[in-house]
């Protein structure tokens, strides 16, 4: 009984955080919802939220979904061999490899994307190499492909890290046993590695999908202003058109995708919480 009381007392430690959550997470969300459901001239309206289905906005949404889906799939395909290869390294090398993978984050991300613009531009490094090889120059600059390269580049890390954490924890003995019993590499991957790394894969998807859908800097720089993601549309409503209500309305509709990701992670998290008996 005494212990029970102690625990409840300790819960008070979180009061500064609870105040912060209310003040800077809950209220801002309510405020953006209020803007979203208010017409520009005042008064309740759901027009700004339904504006997503305007042909221009809907086109941006479809392009965003295409980029986000493509980016997520490519990141998964690139990251799995990477983490499996990293697993083959010994412990010290693993830590070092991880460190080398994270390090590029310390170069400002806008500059890194600008560097890609230079690499992909018609007279850039890539075409220089391609022409040296005697091939036709590529016209990647200012296309959807350039935007795709940019988002994959920027978010690959967020797929590698959770996947690596999940895969590093798999017991080598299990794989050994499977091999002893005659399982082929593919069987081992689909029956053991994939299921055991599923939590990592899920959090990787969550960390890649929504951000790649809503980024506006990458599409701005690598799309040459022609490739509009839904993030670009929202940003312009705030900076150029100054229609805050419309911008808020579109933001609120984006939250549907955030809610879906949240459902994913919470399922993970609840299973992850071991009973905290004390």
């Amino acid at each position: 009984m005494i212990k029970r009381k102690n625990i409840n007392k300790r819960a008070w430690f979180s009061s500064p955080y609870i105040i912060w959550v209310v003040g800077f997470t809950v209220i801002p969300m309510l405020v953006i919802f209020r803007y979203a459901f208010t017409a520009r001239e005042g008064g309740f309206s759901i027009e700004n939220v339904l504006a997503l289905f305007d042909p221009i906005h809907f086109k941006a949404l479809l392009f965003s979904l295409k980029i986000a889906l493509g980016c997520t799939v490519i990141c998964i395909l690139l990251a799995y061999p990477m983490v499996l290869a990293m697993r083959r390294l010994n412990l010290g090398q693993r830590g070092f490899a991880l460190f080398i993978v994270i390090l590029p984050m310390w170069m400002n991300f806008i500059l890194r994307i600008l560097a890609w613009q230079m690499i992909l531009s018609p007279n850039g490094i890539l075409n220089f190499i391609v022409q040296k090889l005697g091939l036709q120059p590529l016209a990647i600059a200012n296309t959807g492909t350039a935007v795709m390269i940019g988002v994959v580049y920027d978010y690959l890390l967020y797929m590698i890290l959770p996947l690596f954490n999940a895969i590093a924890e798999i017991d080598e003995d299990i794989l050994e046993a499977a091999r002893d019993l005659g399982a082929e590499s593919l069987t081992i991957f689909f029956r053991i590695i994939l299921p055991l790394s599923l939590p990592g894969l899920l959090s990787g998807i969550v960390m890649v999908f929504v951000p790649s859908m809503t980024s506006f800097v990458i599409s701005d720089i690598l799309g040459g202003g022609k490739m509009q993601l839904i993030g670009n549309v929202i940003e312009q409503e705030f900076t150029k058109s100054a229609n805050w209500n419309l911008g808020s309305g579109l933001s609120v509709t984006l939250m549907i995708f955030v809610l879906i990701s949240m459902a994913f992670t919470m399922k993970n998290d609840v299973e992850g919480k071991k009973s905290a008996i004390w």
């Binding site: 800077f24 801002p28 953006i32 809503t214 929202i234 990701s261 949240m262 919470m266 998290d269």
Partner: peptide
């Protein structure tokens, strides 16, 4: 569980939505 949901909001929300919501507030 409730607290962890609220903790997840700023992490999972699109940056642009978080930024705009905070600015409007």
């Amino acid at each position: 569980r409730i607290m962890m949901i609220f903790t997840n909001i700023p992490m999972l929300n699109a940056d642009i939505v978080t930024g705009i919501a905070l600015m409007l507030w």
